[in-house]
Design a protein around this nucleic acid. Structure first.
Lengths: 162, 162
DNA sequence: CAGTATCCATAAAGATACTG
DNA sequence: CAGTATCTTTATGGATACTG
């Protein structure tokens, strides 16, 4: 029953391309502290010390993680200056960072529903008030159950002349 | 422009609950090798040595990761016996494991579109042939852009008697 | 094929102190 | 507030050898 099998996914597609996007993603943002920093960034945190405090890691770890995430393009450093203070930087999500959030919310949803906790925290679609969840959807608007999900290697892009 | 802000998410909801599902999820399945094992499991791999070979980790790491994932309920060990061979175990996805796949595919999609690679690998909705991607969707069927996503703390569940 | 055990290198994180 | 630097502990993983 829980066994998924079959050739929906072309196994060789990975090796054909050589490198797996999942592996690369884990390499740039796959640490627990990185994930929690992304959560905080989405949440509106921008200051170094706030990240350290809210994620619960040391400044050294905060520094390392923040630098890596900026380097990877998920966050960007923006200068700001409070009245009477020196200029500082704040860390804000880039578009790539925003695009990363489905990863974070997928983890949230899985943990919420499959790990012991009171489950009272819910993702919500603010305008309509309904609960929200992470789904796989196709370009024709279908919700894609895992059994119908495949992987393909698209042909090299070419100019439309020929 | 890339700055997300505002109180869409009740910041204190995390602390009110005490523990973050994202953090817990990272704790049980947040290692790169665990993520890749999940990819392989979805992909149809069930044998110990195949996991080791395809994920590219040692048997020791495979053993540790597989045990943790079974312990966490993402995989289950099923006995099988090939003709003339002794009984062995194979590792297959449980329902919780299947439910975890959006995390994996969200990483795939992010890496595919935001990290340097040829981007030729695509998730596909097999029945209709269209490309698929990970989205946040609400129970009313709306696609939820990140700006409309919130978090709430639902009241304790009670019997419907009163 | 399906593991377990051991030893070693590396990397990540906590504690703490210091700088502007 | 916003970091950097250092030191130590722990976690992770590779290499390798051994068992059923």
């Amino acid at each position: 029953m829980p066994v998924l099998q079959g050739p929906l996914v072309d196994r060789d597609a990975w090796s054909a391309v050589g490198e797996c996007p999942i592996e690369k993603t884990m390499a740039v943002a796959g640490q627990k502290s990185a994930m929690l920093i992304m959560r905080e960034a989405y949440y509106g945190t921008t200051r170094f010390d706030d990240f350290a405090k809210r994620v619960g890691i040391t400044k050294a770890a905060t520094s390392a993680r923040l630098s890596e995430l900026v380097e990877a393009g998920l966050l960007t450093k923006q200068p700001y200056r409070e009245p009477g203070q020196r200029a500082r930087d704040e860390y804000v999500l880039t578009q790539a960072g925003v695009d990363f959030m489905p990863v974070v919310w997928a983890m949230f949803e899985w943990g919420r529903s499959h790990l012991p906790n009171n489950g009272r925290l819910r993702l919500t679609h603010v305008p309509c008030g309904a609960d929200a969840h992470v789904e796989i959807v196709c370009d024709n608007g279908h919700s894609v159950p895992l059994e119908e999900l495949g992987m393909r290697l698209v042909p090299q892009k070419r100019p439309e002349s020929g």
